[in-house]
Amino acid sequence: MSSTDQIYITAAFKSVRQNEVYIFMQNEYVLCDYAPGAVFSSLECTIFGELGITCAFASHDLGIAYIFSGNICAKWYYGLYSPNNKILEGPKLIVEMFPFLNGTVFANGIDAAFESSRPFEAYLFKGDQCARINYSANGQLINNAPIRQNWPCFKGTIFEHGIDACFASHNPHQAYVFKGDSYARIRFIPGVRFDVLISTGKIKDYWMGLQRILPRKSAIYYSNCN
């Protein structure tokens, strides 16, 4: 990726506070009501602080998220509005954190993910593929198929070919997905092939608070870490 490439949203997950979401643009983030700030201190001098977060999803354990950068991931306590954010596990290879992804397209990186409304399940996206996983202590790969097969509501849209970022809404069984300068809001039921495209459009028209900061330019990173 060149330094002139435009960056929109690379990862997102919902906050524990109603109608708030953390949105990442590589190594920058904003906290939106559906506040800009610096990189979380616990991510400094890690791959996530240097190269950015390319995918994330919130755990059903409050205050915890799984974050990804390339084929590396970590289980992260992001502090619940306190300075005590810290990495709980990792950074490590995706296949070390989630062994059941070994041999799948997700082993080398995940484009987007969001947690299901079913406890300790999440949806992963990579290219035109998607998966539903259980990420508990007895985790497993539940399903792996093309997006257009598992998410019929995306057929004929740009999202059937891939998703850049997404997050589960605080409204049950709803999620937001992003690709380039576009977004969609969907309704879904875990384990049932029933999904509805509620709305779609340009990020700038719906996410008014992001108008001033998107798109970003891909940065060249210099490490100050020993």
Rank of each mutant, 00 (worst) to 15 (best):
T104F: 11
F106R: 00
F106A: 02
A107R: 08
N108K: 05
N108Y: 04
G109L: 14
I110P: 04
I110H: 00
I110L: 02
D111C: 06
D111L: 00
D111E: 06
D111S: 13
A112Q: 03
A112V: 01
A113L: 00
F114T: 09
E115I: 06
S117E: 10
R118E: 15
R118Q: 15
R118H: 07
E121N: 10
E121R: 07
E121P: 07
A122Y: 03
L124H: 04
F125D: 08
F125S: 10
F125Q: 09
K126F: 01
K126W: 00
G127M: 09
G127C: 14
G127L: 12
D128F: 11
Q129T: 09
Q129F: 12
Q129C: 08
Q129K: 14
C130K: 03
C130W: 12
A131N: 14
R132I: 14
R132G: 07
R132P: 10
R132N: 11
Y135F: 11
S136P: 01
S136L: 00
A137E: 15
N138F: 10
N138H: 08
G139I: 02
G139V: 01
G139A: 04
N143D: 13
N144M: 15
N144P: 06
P146F: 07
P146N: 05
P146H: 05
I147Y: 12
R148D: 11
R148C: 06
R148I: 11
R148S: 15
R148Q: 14
Q149N: 13
Q149K: 12
N150P: 01
W151N: 07
W151E: 10
W151V: 04
P152Q: 05
P152W: 05
P152C: 08
C153S: 14
F154Y: 12
T157I: 05
T157M: 04
I158Q: 13
I158R: 09
F159A: 08
F159E: 10
G162N: 04
G162Y: 04
I163L: 04
I163W: 00
